[in-house]
């Protein structure tokens, strides 16, 4: 499924980056060394962490995109890093659980 389809269906905000690409699988987590070993290339990663370290982890794991839950706003230096590294960041007011339920609904 394309990121743009999820953005549309769940009214996500596209903060930065390309949404015209596929994702495959979802991971939820905020502790970066867990995320590092759990997120596979092409996954959508849902987190409430808004800092630049998130962008480094997304870049290293080749996550399809970072989805910031609960209305969290990406910090300015993280926004710059996302731009520089070609990382897609989305955001939503919804909490992670609600996002997962709705994305699961779309995928099934």
């Amino acid at each position: 499924m394309k990121l743009s389809e999820v953005c549309e269906a769940l009214s996500l905000t596209a903060v930065v980056g390309d949404t015209d690409k596929d994702f495959d699988g979802v991971y939820v987590g905020d502790l970066l060394s867990r995320v590092m070993s759990r997120v596979d290339a092409g996954n959508l990663w849902i987190t409430i962490m808004p800092n630049t370290n998130v962008i480094a982890v997304a870049s290293l794991t080749e996550a399809a995109a970072v989805l910031l839950a609960e209305g969290v706003t990406l910090l300015d230096d993280a926004l710059d890093a996302a731009r520089d590294n070609g990382i897609t960041v989305l955001s939503s007011e919804l909490p992670a659980y609600e996002l997962c339920v709705r994305i699961a609904g779309l995928l099934s």
Binding site: S33, T47, M49, N53
Partner: peptide, 16 residues
């Protein structure tokens, strides 16, 4: 608060 401190870094280094 930055997302570090899971205590998984060294285990990951060994594992991978």
């Amino acid at each position: 608060v930055l997302g570090f401190g899971a205590g998984m870094g060294l285990p990951n280094m060994k594992k991978y």
